[in-house]
Every structure is written in C-alpha cells, then in structure tokens.
Design a binder for these strands. Structure first.
Ligand code: MN
Ligand code: MN
Ligand code: ZN
Ligand code: ZN
Lengths: 148, 148
DNA sequence: CTCGCTATTGAGACTGAATCTCATTCTCAG
DNA sequence: CTGAGAATGAGATTCAGTCTCAATAGCGAG
C-alpha cells in the first residue's frame, strides 16, 4: 500500500498531475478489497465511508492507476470491466464459473511458450494476451451432477 | 449457404419460429461477407441493397443464428461484438493487430491440451474458452521497426 | 386459396457502462 | 501564501444492445 501510493505519486508527478484526496481514497479502497473489483463497487464502498467520489473521478482514477502499473484491467466476460492489483500480482489467466461467478486464477508456462511459438510462426509481435475459460467450478459442477 | 438456410429453417421450425425475409437476408449477407463482421456493418450492407432490416431485427437474428449453431459470437477486444460463421469453421483463437486491426486466426492442440489439464487439476469443468493475443502483425511490425 | 392464430417487425424509448462538458474547487511549486 | 493549472461533480452524452407495442406477415388448417 505505502509502496503503491509512492508509485502513484511518482507517476502523477512525472505527468504534472496531482495526488488528490479522491485519488488516494480510490487507491486505498482497492487495497481494502483485494480481488476482482468493478468501478461501481468502488463507488458504493466509498460512499458508505463518506469518501464519495463521482463516477467520472473513479473511472479517471482507475485509468491513471492502470497507466501507472498499479492496477490491471481484466475482462471476465461481463458487460463491464473488472480491475485487480498489478503490483506483486504476476500475470495470470482466469476460469470463470457460469453458475456462481467464482473466478479461479491460473498461469501456465507451457501456454506462454506455445503462444510465443505461434506468434513467431506468423510474424506477429505479441504485446499482451488474455485467456478465459468459462465453465463450472468444482462446487457448481458437483451440484449439477447431483441434479442429474 | 443452402445448407445453412436448411439448418436455420429446421432450427426455427423446431421452436415454432418463422423464416422471414429479414432473417433470410441477414443470413445471406453473412455469407456474402465472410470474416469477422459486426452488427452495424450488416445493417449498413443490407440498407445499400434495399433489404433494410431494423437494428432490433438484426440483433435478434444474430442471436438465433448463434443458437442454431450457424454463427459464432467472437470477442476481438472491441466495445462491440463480432460474429463469424460457425459452420465449416472449426474453433480457433485470434491475434489482433493493435495498429491496423487485422485479425489472424490460429488454433493449437497443445494449448487445448494444457487447458484441459489445468481445468482437471482445479476441478473446473470447461464449457468454452477464448484466447486473444494483442500485438502487431507482420506488416505493422516491420513498419514500426523502420520508424526506429 | 383463404383465414386467422401467432410470431415478427420497426420506430423509437430505454438501459448500463463509460466518457465528456464545464463551472467551481483544489493542489502544490515557488 | 498564492496563482496557474489540474481536478472535481452533476448531469449530459455516447454507444451497443435490448425492450415495447402497434401494425404486419408467415404458415398450417381447412
Ligand atoms: Mn485475476
Ligand atoms: Mn475467427
Ligand atoms: Zn461456481
Ligand atoms: Zn497490423
């Protein structure tokens, strides 16, 4: 957290931007709720704490946090974006349960190797990628099997 | 195309739905422009041919085509969906050029194997997945290297 | 072929996520 | 402490996609 604030402050400074109380509050809130969060949750949580920030500010701040490498935008197949910490949280992919929404994280060297091999073969220079698996988590799978 | 119409007609029939001229026109248009198409393009193309169909009808028809297994919805990282033929077009993943928008398709047995292995390990039952690689296609990569 | 029950259509209202506008307020370097 | 410039919030706006509902069309029975 302290480290993140520092990184953020430096980033903002380098761009002649300012570290406002709203931006600080958003970053703090992200640390309080680790995991995959959405902008509206953030707004909601801040409101409960009387640290309200407008939707516009929250989205603007999230963009800045992404640019500064503190937060990462993730696609979980919903109609809106999710965000997760990038600091101390290495790249990974997601399995998403279609029943309960649970998200499992995974990463696999073999897949990354294959990806690079495939890109090389087509002369494609990869800069990012994402891999999502939709299905049923252990719990929900068992519940379905019962039902049959 | 003939086959697709037949599949569609059967699907519609099985659901007590009707094969209207709008639905036929949409399906026909999809065959005329193979590749990754978007709903608005479809609307535009049909309008040029005086076969206009409303946005609502186009989206409704695309849903039906997906349900009947003729068309597949694909995510290319844009804010809107793309669609591609599913008939005679086996599952594959996409590389998307950030410069020119070009889309390369690829598929890889090793990745599919890894995916299944990883799911098994977590007790996750996969039902679908998608893998996107963002970066620069061969052409654009070379143009960038020149620029340096 | 005609009838009539249903499904379908289109215009436009609506939604939800995200972005923009702009007048007012805040930050921080000097 | 101050002022230039950045940031904020309310609300308007955008954009893809969905919904509503009155008018229309498909199609199976007869
Ligand atoms: Mn994650
Ligand atoms: Mn494709
Ligand atoms: Zn689950
Ligand atoms: Zn390109």
């Amino acid at each position: 957290m302290t480290h993140a604030i520092q990184v953020f402050a430096e980033y903002l400074n380098s761009k002649d931007l300012k570290l406002t109380k709203e931006r600080r509050a958003v970053l703090q809130e992200i640390f309080l709720h680790p995991g995959h969060l959405e902008a509206e949750d953030l707004a909601h949580n801040l409101r409960k704490k009387r640290k309200r920030a407008s939707r516009a500010t929250i989205y603007r701040t999230l963009d800045l946090l992404v640019e500064s490498g503190i937060v990462r935008k993730v696609d979980l197949g919903h109609e809106h974006s999710h965000y997760e910490l990038e600091l101390d949280n290495p790249h990974h992919e997601h399995m998403i349960c279609l029943k309960c929404g649970k998200v499992l994280e995974f990463s696999d060297k073999a897949i990354e190797r294959d990806l690079n091999r495939l890109c090389k073969r087509s002369g494609f220079e990869p800069s990012s990628h994402r891999f999502q698996i939709f299905g049923y988590c252990d719990r929900c799978r068992k519940a379905r099997e019962q039902a049959v």
